[in-house]
Design a protein around this nucleic acid. Structure first.
Lengths: 365, 365
DNA sequence: CGCAGTCATGACAGCGCAGTCATAGAGGGC
DNA sequence: GCCCTCTATGACTGCGCTGTCATGACTGCG
């Protein structure tokens, strides 16, 4: 049959040689123009561009990739989740990649799928990418990937991505530490932690930050409750904590869990923040508007994505240069109305005095 | 250098001809095996696979695309936003694409960027894709795209994607209608609408659904307030509505805005749902746990993505077949505690009687 | 037994670019 | 004026695969 031409588009798509003919130059010169190479006279460049425009020419990426050995694309291994953090990171990565002149290919690891990351990476290698971003990977026991193209790991140790991988992190540990310290500074004797699933590196970092903050002040470390990031798991945890009876401050590993937690506390007759203070993590868009508005820490997703991609692109284009490690971005604690000093009369007031929970708390942005 | 390779990477990566040599067959036969073509004996297939495994061979996608004219990839034009809806759709599309054997290339339109969708589509065409998914586009005035590869439009009229585009929708209009009717059924005389930005087709659909529900019962249509999807805009709108003084029911075009709205109402001394009922849209993960738990409608993102991709893949692979239009997915209203019959004693009770807002409302689901 | 059909394989020719090298004119220094 | 460098261009080749066609070996059936 008729051979199909063009890269998925019309068979009769114009090729560089057509443009060349029209412009009265060689195909190679067209290639030069489209790659911004030196040594093309302004005159010729202009003629070529006009001819190209006239014909509706566009470079064939497949042919270019085949001839050059580079696809100019970056693969992203993302989690198949609409969680705010991962989604934000993906957006940041896309923008940074595009700015750097790379296209993005995305593969999701289906949570629970064994060998998820490894499988996703395989599929990216099959597609042919110049570099790979592994976003917020889950520890699946596999020690590390072994790939021989540059890898960027976001939100996990670089080692996860293999010996030559680079990494960038949101500084989750210091953020978690800041959140915990905020509560301690308010006067709480200790802070409970509602952790994320510990298979996530991100969850571990937050746990570590919490531990570090308590350890630095010689505070007791209450037993950790592990959630699964969902508001539902926070809700369950909230009922447990309420039953425990000695809780005045909780640091939740993300805002969703914090919301569920608060709901459970309210249902148990505890006021937030009068009886129990709660800090979240992420600063999801609704955090400022839930009741009470949530004190939380904001993750610098964009900065991290940008910085990480810079490293990755450098590793792709200048494999020899020493990768300058990314500096930890600044900590940003957003104080709203879900935190306050601990109750002076003991955490558990007589039932019935919950009148102020709805008073409009000051919402600092 | 090191052994294993992607295709933009090590120059020494094994090629089909290497595998062929090792297996004692021709290169063409290797190609046959890797494409699952008929007419390869089990014996030969096995030998080829073993040889390939031994060498760590993987098909070079660029060469394949060049020779076949198909990239086996689908481009997605997404919004650069971490909003729950768009993010969920993207996930659904990725899974569906992978299931169909297509890789995904993602380009975000930066909101506000003029010619955003058109530019994004251009960049996908440059990359070479077999089909394009335009997810929840914003109406930018451009009548429609003109592309000569198959296009799937999600959450907007098919016409937006050009004459030959297919479309799949979440059935936003009927969902919005169901939400509004739920409020009317509770006895509210009319329902206010906090709309999404009207440049979004999704927002228009919801507005239409609301209008249709009211019109069907000959109810007055109060002036629409337009938000920007954010909780913050919902908050502003909430204060406006509270000041208006005659509001007993509001349908917000998404959950984020509903949350902000509720916060503003509470601050204005109104109880939800006793004084004002609120329905959201999306069923974001925290909706069940905010105070009060939010009545909302759930969008069938996964089903829509799957159905849409089925249509797109069919358009790619069997251009002649008639595209069976997707049936509207079922409406799913999630009734929680933010809706109730209108106050019998008039919407504005004496201040001070806000004691029951914290009572644990029954949370369906 | 002979011929048509099916099955299994290989030879060969591009797909549309970018890399390499060759070439030729335009300065520039002495 | 000679040689050398820098600029600007083209001819040719090959990246690694798939499509097409050719070629046998084998079936089955009249």
């Amino acid at each position: 049959m008729t051979p199909v031409g063009g890269q998925g588009s019309s068979p009769g798509a114009p090729r560089a040689v057509d443009v060349a003919r029209l412009a009265g130059v060689s195909q190679k010169t067209v290639s030069r123009v489209f790659n911004g190479e030196r040594y093309v006279s302004a005159d010729v460049r202009e003629r070529v561009l006009q001819a190209a425009e006239h014909l509706g020419y566009r470079l064939n990426g497949a042919a270019r990739a085949l001839a050059s050995g580079r696809t100019r694309s970056i693969g992203v291994v993302a989690l198949g989740t609409a969680l705010y953090g991962p989604a934000s990171l993906l957006i940041g990565v896309e923008r940074a990649a595009r700015d750097a002149g790379y296209a993005l290919r995305v593969v999701n690891t289906l949570e629970g799928d064994p060998g998820g990351v490894a499988g996703a990476v395989e599929s990216l290698l099959d597609q042919g990418v110049d570099g790979i971003v592994v976003s917020e990977p889950i520890d699946e026991g596999s020690v590390s990937l072994s790939v021989d193209i540059p890898v960027l790991v976001l939100g996990a140790p670089a080692a996860f991505g293999g010996p030559r991988a680079v990494a960038a992190g949101v500084g989750a540990e210091s953020l978690a530490r800041a959140a915990t310290e905020h509560l301690l500074d308010l006067g709480h004797v200790t802070v409970h932690h509602l952790a994320g699933p510990q298979r996530w590196f991100a969850a571990r970092d937050r746990l570590q930050g919490w531990r570090a903050a308590l350890a630095a002040r010689d505070r007791e470390q209450p037993a950790v409750i592990e959630g699964d990031w969902s508001a539902s798991s926070g809700y369950t945890a909230g009922h447990e904590l309420a039953a425990a009876g000695d809780v005045t401050a909780v640091f939740a590993a993300n805002d969703d869990m914090a919301v569920g937690l608060i709901r459970a506390l309210l249902e148990a007759g505890l006021r937030v923040p009068e009886d129990v203070s709660v800090v979240g993590f992420d600063d999801i868009p609704v955090s400022a508007y839930v009741t009470p508005p949530l004190t939380t820490v904001r993750q610098p997703f964009d900065a991290v994505a940008q910085e990480g991609l810079r490293l990755l692109v450098q590793a792709i284009e200048k494999p020899d240069a020493e990768p300058a490690p990314a500096g930890d971005p600044p900590v940003e604690l957003v104080v709203r109305a879900s935190t306050a000093p601990p109750p002076t009369d003991g955490p558990y007031p007589a039932a019935g005095s919950r009148d102020s929970a709805h008073a409009p708390p000051a919402t600092t942005d």
